[in-house]
Design a protein around this nucleic acid. Structure first.
Length: 416
RNA sequence: GCGGGUGUAGCUCAGUUGGUUAGAGCGCGAGAUUGUGGUCCUUGAGGUCGUGGGUUCGAUUCCCAUCUCCCGCCCCA
């Protein structure tokens, strides 16, 4: 037997309706916010992610599916959605379109990691990217969109954390202050954080080690170092969210692991699905388009992990509506009747009825069993008698009532 | 990349202190006076007991290795 690659999952026919439920909620939310779908390739030139996500990040350093193709090009399966969309934005000259340009996608992403609860090597994201607006209204709208989406799914067990990590300018000052502070506590830091000190001191704030948490608690806050513009921006985002009735915590310890983020960052987290608690995360990236060779162009977006959302619906008992059931199973008895039933079923389907009939030449009894299993609302039996009279005997599976219906009236009978 | 756990039927799991044909429930198939489902009953199919070595007269059971899946670290959605 050949088995599935590590860290991947089959979505089986009996479960796929749950995925469609999430995807439909995503598309409906996008529609209301006038967000248009964008589809970019599953793989890109590795360069896109090196430049976009940042060469020092863990995602780029140790988690990418990178290979050389037969034309000697370095290709990488997308580990996230934003960089590819940004590349498409630049390449297609979308800065000349009506701005802001609001896009979304539902896509597979790939990261070479050890699988665990809520973490797979191929996973799926619903993501949103807005381009062309610096305004706080845009930040607030993106966050409200995210919340609307989660609400549409019926989710409630989550909290929203927001922070501002400043622009290039104020982050520089903060970095210096943070390093100054960390230097004083350097010996108490965990092994990992000692390395982070040089490469990415911000990440120390995010460390889960007890000693580091203590040190992080006393660290200077980025919020005290924001420049006037960043500060005003963040204040306005908070004000807009509050006015919109969005509950949030300001958490100056949240840091995102992708280099492109600036100013507003946010995470919707839950404690219901294990250690991988972020179900949706994102932020502003005002330097990304330039990094990929475009002009000066702000952007902001988020991505939600579909598998994690599905885990959360399950963990919190969200009721996902059942998949569509077969409306009528047409059961023939004998060859001649089977021919007629095939015709009847075709006709019902042509009229939009979910209809099914025998494929295996089964007896009437097992046809009923089958019809029951697939959840058929009605079973219509056609044998010699019915064939001769031009009728069909329709049984309601819920109450067992049987009615003789003229074949030409069957469609109307089913409809109501 | 590092740690802990796990691996017996499609699924959930028993079991063998090493000994002839390896079990249950669920599911699946067939039947219960041959034109009627969901309950009950009868019956059937389905496992090289994760894989490869080793110990042994004999291993699914003991030992070693390896892989898988699960959980955690790291990181992120």
């Amino acid at each position: 037997m050949i088995n599935i690659p590590k860290g991947t999952k089959d979505v089986l026919p009996q479960d796929s309706y749950k995925w469609r439920f999430v995807e439909n909620a995503a598309r409906e939310t996008a529609k209301i916010f006038n967000v248009k779908e964008i589809r970019t390739p599953t793989f890109e030139h590795t360069e896109v992610f090196l430049r976009g996500i940042g060469e020092t990040t863990d995602v780029v350093n140790k988690e990418m599916y990178t290979f050389t193709d037969k034309g000697d090009r370095s290709i990488t399966l997308k580990p996230e959605g934003t960089a590819g969309v940004a590349r498409a934005f630049v390449e297609n000259g979308l800065s000349n379109s009506a701005l802001p340009l609001k896009t979304y996608y539902i896509t597979s992403c790939f990261r070479y990691e050890r699988p665990q609860a809520g973490r797979l090597r191929e996973f799926h994201q619903f993501g949103v990217e807005f381009f062309g607006s610096y305004s706080a209204e845009t930040d607030a709208e993106v966050i409200i969109l995210a919340k609307t989406f989660l609400e549409k799914l019926g989710l409630t067990d989550y909290v929203l954390n927001i922070n501002s990590i400043g622009c290039k300018e104020c982050r520089k000052e903060y970095h210096a202050a943070l390093k100054e502070y960390l230097k004083k506590n350097f010996d108490a830091l965990c092994k990992n954080c000692k390395e982070r000190f040089e490469k990415n001191p911000l990440r120390v704030l995010d460390c889960k080690e007890e000693e580091c948490k203590l040190i992080a608690a006393g660290a200077p806050s980025i919020l005290d170092y924001l420049c006037d513009d960043c500060k005003a921006h963040f204040e306005k985002v908070k004000k807009l969210l509050t006015a919109a009735g969005v509950k949030f915590n300001v958490n100056d310890k949240i840091v995102r692991g992708l280099d492109y983020y600036t100013k507003t960052v946010f995470e919707f987290t839950t404690d219901c699905i294990g250690a991988q608690s972020t179900v949706l995360g994102g932020g502003r990236y005002d330097g990304l388009i330039e990094e990929l060779g475009g002009g000066k162009m702000p952007g902001i977006g988020f991505a939600a992990g579909i598998e994690r959302l599905l885990l959360l619906t399950e963990a919190t008992g969200v009721k996902i509506p059942d998949d569509e059931k077969v409306q009528i199973y047409v059961a023939p008895i004998g060859e001649t009747a089977a021919f007629k039933c095939f015709e009847i079923v075709n006709d019902l389907r042509a009229n939009g009825i979910i209809a099914e009939t025998d494929h295996l030449g089964r007896g009437i009894k097992s046809q009923f069993k089958y019809a029951d299993k697939i959840g058929a609302k009605y079973v219509a039996v056609m044998g010699e008698d019915e064939l001769n009279k031009g009728e069909i005997k329709v049984k309601s599976m819920a109450d067992g009532n049987e009615t003789f219906v003229k074949v030409e009236n069957l469609l109307n009978f089913i409809k109501g």
